[in-house]
Structure formats: structure tokens, C-alpha cells
């Protein structure tokens, strides 16, 4: 059918580049705004551009992470298999945004404040040990590192499918840590971390239900 042929062509040739550009859009926008700012032109980063940058990169990382966790349920519900081709790319994009978020915090906050690299690292350690939301955020980022490193094809082969999959289950605790990091960062009672937490809970619940269903013996093997 023509519709199916169209979908096949889209999946084969357009899905991956489309995902790439959609995922790159936030950082392209951010870079463009910083370019305008440093050029002395009107920009969209507000009166505290560094703060805006931290929030923007952190929000983007969490949201892309949630999207990456939604891919499998979307595949199950729509039975559109090819969407799985972009899951790794989406997960990696979450890592790149998290990395930029950490680098911005290191460079634009800690380094500017301390003036030296060693001073910035000392301040980082103080923050990690003293401030609960930074403890949580840094833990999430550290758990994300092995997933990003092993996301390459060669590592997948080297680890073997089973171990690789086991390792990549770290995404669940690290997503919880990331959302808690956001929740502990905001002042007063704010909605955004609860929305992220709600979506994450739904995605985790979907997997728990799936796991239970798989453990239940298949009816056909039960035949007496």
C-alpha cells in the first residue's frame, strides 16, 4: 500500500536525521543566543544568562531522558518498530545535554568564582558533599557516564547483549536521581519537578507491569 511504502521510506531515510536535528535544536538555539549576547545584541537569555543556561540545559537533559524512556512503550503501543532505531541517539543526546549542564556549572559558576581550576574543583567537592541537590545531580551524571561510553556498537559486542542490557538498566535509578535533583533545587512548592516525576513514574510503572506479565507462565506451556 502507498501509505505503508511512505512510512517505510520515512523510517529508512528520514527518521534518523529528523531525530538528530530535533535533538540538536535546543543547543543550536542556546549557542545562537549566546552569540547574540557576546555580540552585544538583543538575546533571549534574560537578565541572568548564566542561570538561564543552567536551567535550560538541565530541563532539556531531563526531558530528553524521559523521551528516551518513552520509546519502548511507544513502540509497544503503536507497533511501529523502526522507532527503536533512534532510541540510542535520544539517550546519548540526554547525556550530551547533561554534560553541557555540568560543564556550564563548572565553568560559568565554579571557575569564575574561584579563579583557578584547583579552586573550582575544591568548590565542586564542597558542593557535592554539602548541597543535597548537587549530590543527587552529580550521582545521576556519574551513573550516566558508563551508559554513554558503552553506547557504541563495539562496546555492545564486547559486553554481550545480556550484560549490556543489565548495565543500561542504570537509566532507571539515574532518571529518578535527576528528577530528585530538580525537585530539591527549586524553592518552595513548584510544579515542574512533580510533572517530570509523574511522567517518570508512569514510564517505570509500565516496565514493572511488563516484567510481571513476562514472569507469568505462558498459557500454552501450562496445558496439562
Amino acid at each position: 500500500m502507498a501509505r505503508n511504502a511512505l512510512l517505510r521510506t520515512f523510517s529508512r531515510h528520514l527518521l534518523k536525521p529528523l531525530a538528530f536535528w530535533l535533538l540538536a535544536l535546543p543547543v543550536l538555539w542556546l549557542g545562537w543566543q549566546w552569540g547574540m549576547l557576546l555580540n552585544g545584541q538583543a538575546h533571549g537569555l534574560g537578565f541572568n544568562p548564566i542561570e538561564t543556561t543552567h536551567r535550560f540545559l538541565g530541563d532539556t537533559a531531563i526531558r530528553i531522558l524521559l523521551v528516551s524512556l518513552a520509546i519502548t512503550p511507544i513502540r509497544d503501543l503503536t507497533r511501529w518498530g523502526p522507532i527503536m532505531m533512534v532510541r540510542r541517539r535520544i539517550g546519548l543526546a540526554a547525556f550530551w545535554y547533561a554534560l553541557l549542564h555540568v560543564l556550564a556549572y563548572l565553568g560559568l559558576d565554579l571557575f569564575i568564582e574561584a579563579g583557578t581550576a584547583s579552586g573550582a574543583l575544591a568548590a565542586l567537592w564542597r558542593d557535592v558533599t554539602d548541597r543535597i541537590y548537587i549530590t543527587l545531580g552529580m550521582s545521576a551524571f556519574i551513573l550516566l557516564l558508563p551508559l554513554a561510553i558503552t553506547s557504541f556498537k563495539c562496546c555492545q559486542r564486547w559486553l554481550g547483549a545480556r550484560r549490556w542490557q543489565g548495565l543500561h538498566r542504570l537509566v532507571y535509578p539515574l532518571a529518578i536521581l535527576a528528577v530528585l535533583h530538580h525537585g530539591f533545587m527549586v524553592k518552595g512548592f513548584q510544579l515542574a519537578p512533580w510533572i517530570h516525576g509523574g511522567i517518570l513514574s508512569a514510564l517505570l510503572a509500565y516496565r514493572l507491569v511488563g516484567m510481571k506479565a513476562r514472569k507469568r507462565p505462558h498459557p500454552s506451556t501450562n496445558a496439562a
Binding site: I50, L108, I112, E113, D127, Y133, M185
Partner: peptide
């Protein structure tokens, strides 16, 4: 508990 209070960002001037 959230912000080291030893220095502050100056709003409205040089971004850094």
C-alpha cells in the same frame, strides 16, 4: 544549603 554566599553575580552588567 543551596548557594555558597561568599560571592554574588552582578545583574545587569557584564554577564560574567
Amino acid at each position: 544549603p543551596r548557594w555558597s554566599q561568599s560571592s554574588e553575580r552582578v545583574i545587569g552588567g557584564n554577564v560574567f
